[in-house]
């Protein structure tokens, strides 16, 4: 992967107001998704199909919380108090996907988060690799090195379950349920937030290109689930994105947020009350 850094912004303070605001929205969304995804991985440390898979969930949970912490700490330069972001917000203030609002009840559903959603998040992070917002470069590179193993875990397990009819049926249901949230995570065509960030050199491609990159990454593995087809060597989503209920600011379904248990875990409520 080549990196061609444009001469750019050495700190958030140098960003024009609109870019400062838009990047802050994107970063908060990434941080919240990583924190909540870490919780969902942690739910499967015990109870995964094998000890190794449980250890992998533990490692991925730690990775996601580490990534979330890095991004939250960056947000202090975007007008946020990181401590308040991490510990004081209500459920409705979270920007994490509706897919992460509550625990998932099966391994195929966890794989939908691991393979589809985690990959979608990573594709959006990749768009910051060549960002002209310089503070983000090294952080993003290290983060993506760790995410490579998350992708391989999701892809390896998805391929494995595809080999049995029962596994394939369960995956089909779980992946179909998660599919639309993944499609629209990148934003609608001509999303004003992403368009402005592309124009400003903060992210490298627009929403449709990012969505296409995600489809090309997950498409070959999910080809037998009826969710994708190929056209001119590109993977295309069978269902079109459904934008009903989409919130462009929260970058998720406008309704809802993490459930009470997830929120308490994300904020560390129970243990912080002892201090």
């Amino acid at each position: 992967m080549t990196e061609t850094t444009k001469s750019g912004f050495k700190s958030a303070a140098e960003l024009p107001d609109d870019l400062h605001s838009h990047l802050g929205i994107l970063l908060l969304s990434l941080a919240d998704n990583k924190r909540m995804l870490g919780i969902r991985y942690s739910d499967w440390i015990l109870g995964a199909p094998s000890v190794e898979a449980g250890i992998a969930c533990s490692a991925m949970a730690q990775d996601e919380w580490g990534h979330g912490r890095i991004i939250y700490s960056m947000l202090k330069d975007f007008g946020h108090d990181p401590a308040a972001l991490e510990h004081e917000r209500t459920s409705e203030e979270y920007r994490s996907s509706e897919l992460l609002d509550c625990d998932v009840s099966s391994w195929p559903e966890l794989l939908a988060l691991n393979f589809l959603w985690d990959t979608a998040i990573s594709v959006q992070v990749e768009m910051l690799l060549e960002s002209c917002f310089e503070p983000i470069h090294y952080k993003v590179r290290k983060l993506l090195e760790e995410e490579r193993f998350h992708f391989d875990h999701g892809s390896g397990w998805t391929s494995r379950l595809m080999t049995s009819d029962e596994g394939k049926n369960a995956l089909g249901k779980a992946f179909a349920t998660a599919w639309n949230a993944c499609l629209r995570w990148f934003g609608p065509e001509n999303d004003p937030l992403i368009e402005a960030l592309v124009e400003g050199g903060i992210v490298s491609t627009n929403a449709d290109c990012a969505r296409m990159r995600w489809l090309n990454r997950v498409g070959p593995t999910v080809r037998d689930l009826g969710l994708v087809y190929t056209e001119n060597s590109e993977w295309v989503s069978e269902p079109a994105p459904d934008w009903n209920g989409w919130s462009p600011v929260r970058r998720r379904a406008s309704e809802g947020g993490p459930d009470a248990d997830s929120l308490a875990r994300a904020r560390g409520d129970r243990n912080r009350s002892l201090l």
């Binding site: 190794e52 250890i55 992998a56 490692a59 991925m60 193993f149 391989d152 875990h153 391929s159």
Partner: peptide
Amino acid sequence: TITAPNRKLARVYAWQTYD
């Protein structure tokens, strides 16, 4: 050692287990 169903998961498990 680790136990895995394929090379891809073997690589993931090895890296994440022996860290």
